[in-house]
Design a protein around this nucleic acid. Sequence first.
DNA 1: GTGGTCTAGACCACT
DNA 2: GTGGTCTAGACCACA
Lengths: 124, 124, 124, 124
Amino acid sequence: MFIEIDFNSDEALYLQLRNQIILGIALDEYHEGDALPSVRQLADDIGINMHTVNKAYSVLRQDGYVKVDRRRGAFIAVDSVKEEHLRGMRERMKAVVAEAVCRNVSKRELHALIDGIYEEYGLE
Amino acid sequence: MFIEIDFNSDEALYLQLRNQIILGIALDEYHEGDALPSVRQLADDIGINMHTVNKAYSVLRQDGYVKVDRRRGAFIAVDSVKEEHLRGMRERMKAVVAEAVCRNVSKRELHALIDGIYEEYGLE
Amino acid sequence: MFIEIDFNSDEALYLQLRNQIILGIALDEYHEGDALPSVRQLADDIGINMHTVNKAYSVLRQDGYVKVDRRRGAFIAVDSVKEEHLRGMRERMKAVVAEAVCRNVSKRELHALIDGIYEEYGLE
Amino acid sequence: MFIEIDFNSDEALYLQLRNQIILGIALDEYHEGDALPSVRQLADDIGINMHTVNKAYSVLRQDGYVKVDRRRGAFIAVDSVKEEHLRGMRERMKAVVAEAVCRNVSKRELHALIDGIYEEYGLE
DNA sequence: GTGGTCTAGACCACT
DNA sequence: GTGGTCTAGACCACA
C-alpha cells in the first residue's frame, strides 16, 4: 500500500495518514487482522516523525479501525457500524449536500458522484 | 436563521459558522443578495470573538459564497459551480464512502442517506 | 486544590495527574463547569512538561470527566454513569476483593474500608 | 484453572497474569503449597513470552503470594496481611470510590458491588 | 525491537 | 495567550 503525504496540505499529517489507512481498508489493500507497520518503520518510510504516526494510530484505535496486540503491535480490526458512526457520516454528508444544493448540483448528480467513486475504485 | 455553535466540538468555530451559513443558503433561508449581519453583531449574538466571525466570512468569500462590499458589508453571492468545487466535493464524498465501505454500509444505504437529508430539509 | 506529583512513583505522571483531578472532583474541590488551568499554567505550577498535562487532560476528556470549550479551554463536565464505567469499576473492585480474600480480609472489613474512606474525606 | 489473557487490553500482560493468579488463589483453585506451572509451560499454554511469565512470578513473589524453590519452582505461599498490603488496598479502593462519587454511584451501591462479586464467585 | 512516557522547543491556527 | 500539531531525542517497560 502506498501512503502519500502532502506536506503542503493544510490537513494535519496524522489525519492524512489516518484517512489514507481508512481508504486502504475500504479498498481491501489492508485486510482484517493485517498488522500495520511499526510506528518507527512507517515514520521512516514516509519521512515523518514517529510521534505523528503514533497519533494517527491512536486516532484509528479510538475510531474503531485498529486494535493493538501487545505482542504484535497494531493490526486492522474494524468495529461494526454503530449509531455514533452513522451520525458522523450523516453530518459530513449533510455538509456535502448543502454545498451541492448551493451550487445547483442535483440530487441525481450526487448519486452519480457516489457511483463514480465506487466505480473508480472497483468497489461494491 | 438560527446559528448554533457547539463550543465543545472538535470542529473550529469559524468552520462551524461557515458550514451553517452554507446550510442556510441551501435551505433558502439566505437568498442571493441578502446582507449578512455585521461581524460585530453576529459575534455578539452567538457569543464568539469578532475575529472568528471575520475569519468565517473570509473563508466564505474565498469559497465563493459571499461577496463583500465596503458599504453594505457581506452579502450572499454564490458562484456558479466550478471544476474546483466539484473536485472538493468529490474528495469529501470519497472520505465518507471510504468510511461507509469499511463499516459495511452499502452503496444503496448511502443513496438513502442522501435522500433522507433532502427529505428532512424539504429540499428539491 | 493541591496537586502533588510523586516523581519516584512508578505510576505515569499523566495518570497521577488524572487521578488527582478525579479525586478533586469527588471531593467537590472542582465543581461542574469549573475551568481547569491551561496546560502551560498547570505544567509550570507542578513542574512537569506541557505535553504531559495535555495527555492527562485528553484522557480525562476520553473518560468523560472534562470537556473542552474552544474559547475557555478545559472545564469539568462529568458524564452520567454508563454501563462501561460500571464495568470498569467492577473490574478494579474485583481485583481489590481478590486480594482481600487472599489475605483473609473479610467482606465486613471491606465494607468498613469504604466507609472509612467516605468518612476521612467527609463524603456522602 | 483457566487463565485468560486479553492481548488487546491496556493492562500489561504480566499484570493480567498476576491478577488472574491472585484471583485463582482467592477462589481456592490454587491452594497454599500448590506448585505453579513452570515458566516455560505456562508461556506456551497461553501463548506469551517466557520473560512475561517470569515477570509475573517475580511480582507475585515480591507481593507475597508465591515463593520460589530452586528445585520445585514457584508455589503458592500467601503472606499474612501486613500494614503495607492494607495501605495498597486502601489506595486502590480510594481510586474506585473517587470514581464512584464523581459518577453519583452511592456508597450503598458500592457495598452492593462488593457483595455481588462475593456472590458471583461463591465466596465466603 | 516495540510501544509508552517524558521532555523540549517550535510554529501555527484559533480565540 | 490558548490549544493543536510537529519534530527531536531519550529512557524504560514490555514482549
